[in-house]
Design a protein around this nucleic acid. Structure first.
Lengths: 214, 214
DNA sequence: GCGCGGCAAATGTGATCACAAATGCATATG
DNA sequence: CATATGCATTTGTGATCACATTTGCCGCGC
């Protein structure tokens, strides 16, 4: 087995998995976009074997859907499914934020503010991919404090499933303002206001669904 | 590709996946039990290729853990992890039950009662595997009414991760009574009592953790 | 008796090949 | 011009092989 450079031994399929996962989660692919084994294999200079593992793994997490004939594509979500995934986000993220609250010190709040500034920049530049990535980084940074790896992994799976759709929705969103609810989250964190934090996180997560329902 | 019998074309790796998933979820394997590619391949009369896909997929769902050298084994959960997974179950299952409540008609309640009787039989026979399987069937039957496939899939993943540990805990549990909380769930369903249902589901899910904390 | 070294077996990984099914495009047909 | 037919290409699947690493067991030496 060809080892990489001197550090970070990563199996080929794991490297593929991580790269493709980021592409999907951060909205670099459109909903319904097809992915082929040989296409990915050629792009990364490997055989189809590790590609199969990576794609199957992503499919198992809901990041890809498999057609009846076995073809891979990014999922095309119905409105019902989007609403359900948003409800899952709300459920789990409110819990994660609640668990993080007693451990959230000033250094964390400052870090979140820095990320929030990066989000504002992405919004100003209308850079959808950067917006999605930094927005998720904001949430992940907060939830890491919850010391709840299983919950975090679960919610990341939800993010993954919504990635391509979030990108497609971003164009319709016509965002012009930096995230309002993030400021509410930061304020609640500073004040130690658990009810306020729960409301703010729930509102932030379910934001952007109004245009779907309406 | 050798087709199976005339109906239900299932790819070999998918067949393997389903079979192994059931073994794990229903507690037919102990925590930390090793699984090898060639072992499974020989048992099922296939090559290692489809086995790799099935095991990788199970690992992606947390049903198996992978050692640093790439070996597969059923997960050995810490108490913190068990508590976290139980909290996840509580969060999601309470929501699923709530969503199922307005759609729960008499036929569903009767079906749940039938399953509940099967659980009592398994308890009387001290049959851990049957107990776990029928208990999960009780929950799944209720939650199917919620029309929330993403939530159901997520909670099934949690069940999967807990499977081997649930089996190991069952022995310590010394169960002698049929599930008390299930009767509360049924009563709340019949009465249309949403708060009562939420409390009963939460209690049922987090039951059995007292011996861990104590 | 106990620990250590070394070798054989076991194990996961990735490449390659053959195969069947699905896809898609070009051509023929009404 | 639209629809159907047929064939070449694409695509996923599974088997097999070579290889590097790890595991584990046996025997040697202290």
């Amino acid at each position: 087995m060809a080892e990489k450079l001197q550090d970070s031994y990563l199996a080929a399929h794991d490297q593929l998995y991580r790269t493709l996962r980021m592409r999907i989660m951060y909205g670099e692919m459109r909903p319904g976009q097809a992915i082929t084994l040989r296409g990915v294999a050629e792009e990364f200079g490997v055989s189809v074997t590790p590609v199969r593992e990576a794609l199957k793994r992503l499919a198992a997490e809901g990041a890809l859907s498999i057609s009846v004939s076995g073809r891979f594509q990014t999922p095309v979500l119905t409105n019902d499914r989007i609403e359900e995934l948003a409800a899952l986000r709300a459920l789990i993220e409110v819990e994660l934020a609640t668990r993080a609250l007693p451990r959230a010190h000033m250094a964390l709040v400052e870090r979140l503010q820095t990320i929030n500034n990066a989000i504002s920049v992405a919004v100003a530049k209308a850079d959808a991919v950067t917006y999605i990535r930094t927005n998720l980084e904001f949430h992940r940074t907060l939830y890491l404090r919850a010391q709840a790896p299983a919950m975090l992994a679960t919610v990341e799976t939800v993010w993954l499933q919504m990635g391509p759709t979030m990108r497609a929705l971003y164009g319709r969103l016509q965002r012009k303002d930096p995230p309002m609810h993030h400021r509410l989250i930061l304020a609640a964190l500073k004040a130690g206001d658990e009810p306020g934090l729960r409301v703010a996180v729930r509102a932030d997560v379910t934001q952007g669904l109004r245009m779907l329902a309406g």
